[in-house]
Simulated assay, not measured.
Amino acid sequence: PTDVRARIGYMPENDAYIPGMNAVTFVAYCGQLSGLGAADAMQRAHEVLYYTGLGEARYRAVETYSTGMKQRIKLAQALVHDPELLFLDEPTNGMDPKGRDEMLELVRDLAHNKGISLVLSSHLLPDVEYVCDHVVVIDKGQVATHGPIADLKGPGGRVYELRVKGDEVAFVSALQGVGMECHRTDEDIMRVFVPEGLSWRDLFLMASQRGVQVRHLRPSVPSLEDVFARAVGEQEAITHERSVD
């Protein structure tokens, strides 16, 4: 229904432009589909194309755009009718680092300064953490965790970067046995979540007991990636328990 389309904007992951149309005509057409009159749609098309950084290229055919420019026009068509709620599906997909940063600034501006509520779907957790206030983590079709990002990142405990030499498998198993959570970030660094009641001293103690050398230990700020790793680990444990039962 038109009244619903007028309140919701949608930026799809896949390209969905009309070949042969230039950018301003395409965005104005999308505005008309969402309930704007022809004159208002054209005026808004110019405005949102400038806002998204495509003002100088608004008369070019959309199919001649680069990947980053196509991402911008998808955002422009989602904004042209000034929606209350915006759905963004992988908005930085295929963009170079500079374009990605600029897109995130636009999205953050919409959420924090323009009063638009938005739902962002992305596998790039740093993007989500930069833009969003709340998160829903979905793993294999199930909600693994949800809530304000600040609350999910800030339960009691600390995160450490750790590198060891020795029987790492047995060491990690021992850490997990007392409630610590571990996940690897690269070839030799792991991140360890130490819950309340335990401290970094316990890492050294358990390493010493198992003949493992601690080569590197540094406190780290909890990130959304830590939240995801913990949530997915807990979800897998629940799934395993149900399968055993």
Results as ranks from 00 to 15, higher is better:
residue 161 E to S: 15
residue 175 L to F: 05
residue 88 L to K: 04
residue 48 V to F: 03
residue 19 P to K: 00
residue 19 P to W: 01
residue 101 D to Q: 11
residue 181 E to C: 01
residue 124 L to Y: 13
residue 207 A to K: 04
residue 23 A to M: 00
residue 100 R to S: 13
residue 147 G to Q: 11
residue 216 H to T: 08
residue 117 S to V: 03
residue 68 G to T: 07
residue 16 A to S: 12
residue 169 V to T: 13
residue 108 R to K: 15
residue 18 I to T: 11
residue 229 A to L: 07
residue 18 I to A: 08
residue 163 R to P: 00
residue 114 K to Y: 09
residue 144 A to L: 12
residue 35 G to M: 06
residue 84 E to H: 10
residue 195 P to D: 11
residue 44 R to V: 00
residue 109 D to E: 14
residue 208 S to P: 00
residue 13 E to T: 08
residue 63 E to S: 12
residue 155 P to G: 09
residue 93 N to F: 07
residue 86 L to H: 06
residue 189 I to F: 12
residue 68 G to P: 08
residue 153 K to S: 10
residue 111 A to D: 09
residue 78 A to N: 07
residue 207 A to C: 04
residue 116 I to C: 08
residue 138 I to Q: 03
residue 126 P to M: 11
residue 36 L to F: 00
residue 199 S to D: 14
residue 142 Q to H: 14
residue 43 Q to Y: 02
residue 73 I to H: 05
residue 86 L to C: 08
residue 65 Y to K: 05
residue 162 L to Y: 09
residue 33 L to N: 02
residue 35 G to H: 03
residue 73 I to W: 08
residue 42 M to K: 14
residue 159 V to K: 00
residue 215 R to T: 15
residue 128 V to T: 11
residue 166 G to Q: 09
residue 6 A to F: 05
residue 56 E to K: 13
residue 87 F to W: 06
residue 209 Q to D: 14
residue 53 G to P: 04
residue 139 D to H: 15
residue 160 Y to I: 10
residue 133 D to I: 10
residue 139 D to P: 00
residue 107 V to D: 12
residue 228 F to E: 07
residue 220 S to M: 05
residue 111 A to T: 09
residue 32 Q to C: 09
residue 186 D to S: 10
residue 221 V to E: 15
residue 98 K to A: 15
residue 78 A to C: 04
residue 107 V to C: 13
residue 39 A to E: 03
residue 148 P to R: 14
residue 127 D to V: 10
residue 110 L to E: 04
residue 107 V to P: 06
residue 192 V to C: 02
residue 25 T to E: 14
residue 6 A to P: 02
residue 46 H to Y: 09
residue 78 A to W: 01
residue 17 Y to H: 12
residue 221 V to D: 15
residue 205 L to S: 10
residue 39 A to D: 02
residue 245 D to P: 00
residue 109 D to M: 11
residue 219 P to W: 02
residue 214 V to I: 15
residue 228 F to N: 06
residue 144 A to C: 10
residue 66 S to A: 08
residue 93 N to H: 10
residue 122 S to I: 10
residue 12 P to A: 09
residue 224 L to H: 02
residue 21 M to N: 06
residue 121 S to R: 03
residue 172 V to L: 07
residue 163 R to G: 11
residue 83 P to T: 04
residue 226 D to K: 07
residue 106 L to K: 10
residue 180 M to A: 01
residue 82 D to I: 02
residue 154 G to Q: 09
residue 109 D to K: 14
residue 214 V to Y: 07
residue 32 Q to T: 07
residue 230 R to G: 01
residue 198 L to G: 02
residue 204 F to T: 13
residue 144 A to M: 06
residue 217 L to I: 15
residue 57 A to T: 08
residue 44 R to P: 00
residue 203 L to S: 06
residue 27 V to E: 01
residue 29 Y to V: 00
residue 211 G to S: 11
residue 107 V to K: 05
residue 67 T to D: 08
residue 177 G to L: 06
residue 12 P to N: 12
residue 95 M to Q: 12
